[in-house]
């Protein structure tokens, strides 16, 4: 059975978010927790980018010689792509800060166990 690409992307996004929330809540290793948080962010980004998907669509760039009707009917919606780029940058910055804090806490405690550093 061939699943629709957009539907598959949405399911994957949902799965990433659920796995990420589970990991962020229940994993004890702080690095794994950060990876789980990245899963949630990636799930949200994939969800966002899949909104702009159009089956058989073309890139939203009007090239010379292109028929206006072909462009207007087939071009995919570009806004989610623009937004998701910003979101990826934000996610990367947040993750960098979190990892930086974990490095410092690891020096202080000699461990990256959430239960040891952050308490229950």
């Amino acid at each position: 059975m061939i699943i629709d690409t957009q539907l598959a992307a949405l399911f994957t996004a949902g799965a990433l978010i659920v796995i990420g929330i589970f990991g962020a809540l229940f994993l004890d290793n702080l690095i794994k927790k950060v990876i789980a948080l990245a899963f949630i962010g990636d799930g949200a980004n994939l969800f966002l980018v899949s909104l702009g998907y159009k089956a058989g669509g073309i890139v939203y760039i009007f090239l010379p010689g292109m028929a206006m009707s072909n462009f207007s009917q087939n071009a995919s919606y570009p806004l989610p792509y623009a937004l998701v780029l910003t979101s990826i940058v934000i996610g990367a910055s947040t993750m960098a800060v979190m990892l930086g804090i974990i490095i410092i806490l690891n020096k202080k405690y000699g461990s990256i166990s959430a239960s040891k550093i952050l308490g229950e």
């Binding site: 978010i17 929330i21 948080l37 949630i40 962010g41 979190m98 806490l105 952050l118």
Partner: peptide, 28 residues
Amino acid sequence: NYETALKYMILGGIASPILLLGIALLLG
């Protein structure tokens, strides 16, 4: 202070994508 900041960021790591999802749904 580092422990508190990390806790805040971990919670933010869950809450912010959820907010983004809400915005994505509105966009959709």
